[in-house]
Computed example of a mutant assay.
Amino acid sequence: MYESVLSLSPQQQSSETQKKMGDTKVETISRLAQWKIDNFGPCSYKKSDPFKLGLWNWHLAIEKNRYLYVRLFPEPSRVSKDQPPLARFILRVSNLGLSRRPYISPIHERLLRNSDDFVWPVDTTFYGRFIIDVEFLDLKICPSTGGQAVSIWPTQGNMQSLASQSALQTISRMLYEEICTDVTITTVDGTLKAHKAMLSASSPVFQSMFLHDLKEKESSTIAIDDMSWESCRALLSYIYGTMNPEDFWKHRLGLLAAANKYDMTNLKDACEESLLEDINSGNVLERLQEAWLYQLDKLKKGCLTYLFDFGKIYDIKDDLSNFFQTADRELLTEMFQEILTAWKPA
């Protein structure tokens, strides 16, 4: 066995050593990547396994000389060559099991093509077991032919066919020019015109209003007194297929409430996926409340994973007191169960 290892090249020996050490896997959730390193002592270099985030596969690497150096770079591929990422991110290094303060980088924004494009020197006293976090604030595509970099968030999607574009333009005119509208929607700060057929096709709740002898059928008026005019306009834009990503991003919490109220499953799922994309320490408790209120299991699991599996509950300890006073008891019970699981001795 010893002779077989010696027969390998230095690069192969390094790869074999990393496999034996077994701590090269990087976990990801939302826009956060976390590398837990169990042992980094005499080894002077270690590279993580590739991890997927955005359009690219990434690597983290560490090496120790006078300082501990951290590198972040995309895995060589046609995508990273033709569409290299312009990344905006924060790095954080913290010891496992120690109370010392983590080492946090400033916000970096770099065009990353290879392992030499970003090297960050860290306090040399980090050793043994520690964690490296990378939180991506934005990822943009830089075309190899030049031109303006374009963010991959939140506007990913497929190009519409010409036929679909024509249909959407027609439907858009029906809404915005109020062509043959037959129902009025009243909100807390204004009114909107729409079509019963479009509303009925989008929601069984709306359909029931117009099929049965309810006041909405008789008056051709729907009172939506828990939405603003602007949020309700965004809801109609979704129903008519004319919503742009920026409006969806701006009104997604209001749209989530409406989707739950009017049984619009696709919209509810879209809101949940969107809210999963940008969980951070500033919004995770609010997202957890929304997940509990609207029974969003994926979002709830994502928030709990972020807090406990990734250890981010320590970053929001100042906000927990108010949260514990207002949160549902069943939710708090589930959180404490997660705490017991996360802190259970290995």
Rank of each mutant, 00 (worst) to 15 (best):
S4R: 05
V5M: 09
S7E: 13
P10Y: 09
Q12P: 00
T17M: 07
K20M: 07
K25Q: 14
W35D: 02
I37G: 01
F40Q: 01
F40G: 02
Y45Q: 12
K47W: 05
L53E: 03
L53C: 06
G54T: 06
N57T: 02
W58I: 03
N65Y: 14
Y67W: 12
Y69V: 11
V70L: 14
E75Q: 14
E75N: 08
P76Y: 04
P76H: 04
V79Y: 02
K81W: 08
P85W: 01
L86Y: 09
I90K: 05
S94R: 12
G97P: 03
G97Q: 12
L98A: 14
R100D: 08
R101M: 07
P102D: 08
N114P: 00
V122M: 07
T124P: 15
E135S: 12
G147A: 15
G147V: 10
Q148H: 15
Q156S: 11
L162K: 13
S166Y: 15
S166L: 15
A167F: 13
A167M: 15
I171L: 10
I179W: 09
T184H: 05
T186W: 04
V188W: 13
K193Q: 10
K196Y: 03
F210C: 05
H212G: 10
D213A: 14
D213Q: 14
S219H: 04
S220C: 11
S220R: 03
T221W: 00
I224F: 13
D225G: 03
D226P: 00
S228Q: 11
L236D: 02
S237K: 00
Y238R: 00
Y238L: 05
Y240K: 02
G241N: 04
M243H: 06
E246G: 04
D247E: 14
K250H: 12
R252P: 01
L253Q: 13
L256P: 00
L256S: 06
L256C: 03
A257M: 07
A259R: 01
L267I: 10
E272Q: 14
N280P: 04
G282R: 06
G282T: 14
Q289F: 11
E290K: 03
Y294M: 06
G302S: 09
T305V: 14
I313T: 08
D318Y: 15
F323L: 07
F324E: 10
L332N: 05
T333P: 07
Q337I: 10
L340P: 00
K344Y: 06
K344F: 07
K344V: 04
